[in-house]
Simulated scan of single mutants.
Amino acid sequence: MATVELTTENFNDVVGGSGIVLVDFWAEWCGPCRAFAPTFEAASEKNEDITFGKVDTEAQQELAATFGIRSIPTLMIVREGVVLFSQPGALPGNALDDLIEQARKVDMEEVHAKVAEAQQQG
């Protein structure tokens, strides 16, 4: 599956769904971002059931600010609308594959229960 360009207009529609979404915050001028791009693209081709999106932090400064992106590349994993992982730095392919497997194994009923509990506590 090809990666999806994420913008302020489509971000919530793409990321707020029921599946797993990997988001790569990047910029054209960023060397590590360009080095990570083929790894991200290869993972998208191996995991066709997952949505892979890219946020160009230069063009989408509002989105980058919303998520507090201070260093790029930053990889974020969202599942069922909940951010499970967000960390700057380019990952090697095997580490990205491992991270994807971990995201698949998360018990989302437990996560949603904890989120609801935290919201009730205010």
Rank of each mutant, 00 (worst) to 15 (best):
N47I: 07
I77F: 03
E110H: 13
L99G: 07
V82E: 13
K105V: 01
T39Y: 02
G89H: 06
D49Q: 09
A90G: 14
A27K: 04
F40W: 03
F40T: 09
D13G: 10
I20L: 15
V83N: 08
H112W: 02
G93Q: 12
A95Y: 03
R104Y: 04
V106L: 09
E101K: 13
A43F: 02
A116S: 13
E48K: 13
T66W: 00
T66A: 15
F52H: 10
E48L: 03
V111Y: 05
G31H: 09
G81F: 06
F40N: 09
L75K: 06
D24P: 04
H112Q: 15
A59D: 10
E110T: 14
T51A: 13
V21M: 04
S86E: 13
V4C: 05
F36K: 10
I72S: 07
A64L: 04
C33N: 08
F67S: 10
R79A: 13
T3Q: 06
A2W: 00
D97Y: 03
A2G: 12
W29D: 11
D98I: 00
A35P: 00
V55A: 12
G89Q: 08
V82W: 02
A35C: 00
Q61H: 02
Q119C: 01
T8M: 09
T51C: 04
T74P: 01
P32L: 09
L6M: 05
A35S: 12
E80C: 01
W29V: 08
T74G: 07
Q61C: 00
P38F: 11
L75D: 05
A95M: 11
M108R: 07
V55Q: 10
T39Q: 04
W29H: 10
D24T: 11
I50F: 06
E45G: 14
K46D: 14
L84K: 07
V115W: 05
E109L: 12
K54T: 10
G81W: 05
Q61I: 01
P32I: 12
V4Y: 01
D49Y: 00
L84E: 10
E48R: 06
L75F: 05
G53K: 02
A43T: 04
Q102W: 02
V111S: 07
A27Q: 08
E117T: 04
G81L: 07
A42R: 13
V78C: 08
S86M: 15
L84N: 09
A118S: 13
A113C: 01
Q120F: 03
V78E: 11
T8N: 09
G16M: 11
E5M: 08
A42G: 04
E5Q: 14
S44W: 02
V23Y: 03
D98P: 00
D107P: 01
T66S: 15
E5P: 00
A65D: 14
G16I: 08
V15Y: 04
V111R: 03
G93I: 02
L96W: 02
E5F: 01
D24A: 13
G19P: 03
G89A: 09
G16F: 06
E45Q: 15
E109D: 15
E58T: 15
N10T: 07
D49T: 06
L75I: 15
F11G: 12
P73R: 11
V23L: 06
S18L: 00
D56L: 09
E58V: 11
V15L: 08
Q119W: 01
A65P: 00
F36E: 06
V21A: 10
G19R: 01
A27T: 04
A65E: 14
A103K: 02
N10F: 04
E5K: 14
L84H: 08
D56I: 06
E117K: 12
S71F: 09
